[in-house]
Design a protein around this nucleic acid. Structure first.
Length: 197
DNA sequence: ATGAAGATGAAT
DNA sequence: TTCATCTTCATC
């Protein structure tokens, strides 16, 4: 346990009603729990509405409908037919921006995560968007749920962090601003940040 | 109706 | 580098 004044503020849904890149930076070091299981966010990616690689870029569809809704909700989609990926919807209604949560450092519910993942190594529990969802048991069932109510629990980081950034993973389409953001020096990144730009 | 591609992960 | 696995969306 830590000393007195270090209580971490709960992140309300309004937190996400602003520029997605700003939200990304604020989220590094924040804590994410689903039904009490989770840890510290160490890696995210920004997808704004002007980004050809973003799901909302070509307009609203059944899958991405939540992205067009109000900020502070979960957007969950199926990736490569196998994995689930978790996003936090940003900006107001009608603007399809979101943060892809790519990796976290497990701090609570390690045993539960290990069981769900079928392995022990803490570094492999939630270091990647698909792994993270498996570890936290996130599926289509969480799509559209507000982030400031159970089963979600989000808390602001308590101390300053050093943030690194670079090109996104698995994106071939050109885009000017979109970035991957990470906690400098973390051992729980999905991949190292080698080529800053 | 049909098919191609996809914000991944694990194994080879 | 390959492949598993299947939904989504655009097109025919």
């Amino acid at each position: 346990m830590r000393g007195s004044g270090s209580a971490r503020a709960v992140i309300e849904r309004d937190f996400f009603d602003r520029d997605v890149h700003e939200v990304c930076r604020e989220l590094i070091g924040a804590e994410l729990y689903v039904d009490g299981v989770g840890g510290r966010i160490v890696e995210v990616e920004a997808y704004d509405h002007e980004d050809p690689a973003a799901h909302g870029y070509r307009g609203r569809t059944e899958r991405n409908a939540v992205m067009f809704g109000p900020a502070g909700h979960a957007y969950v989609y199926r990736s490569y037919g196998i994995h689930w990926c978790l996003n936090f919807v940003c900006e107001g209604e009608g603007v399809a921006d979101a943060v892809l949560v790519r990796a976290l450092e497990p701090t609570r519910g390690l045993e539960t995560m290990a069981e769900r993942r079928g392995l022990d190594d803490p570094r492999l529990l939630a270091s990647g968007p698909g792994r993270l969802c498996q570890a936290l048991a996130i599926t289509r069932a969480e799509d559209g749920l507000p982030l400031d109510r159970p089963p979600f629990e989000l808390r602001e980081r308590a101390t300053p962090v050093e943030i690194v950034q670079g090109p996104r993973i698995g994106i071939t389409k050109a885009a000017e601003r979109p970035w991957r953001y990470g906690l400098a020096g973390s051992r729980f990144l999905s991949r190292p940040f080698s080529e800053p730009r």
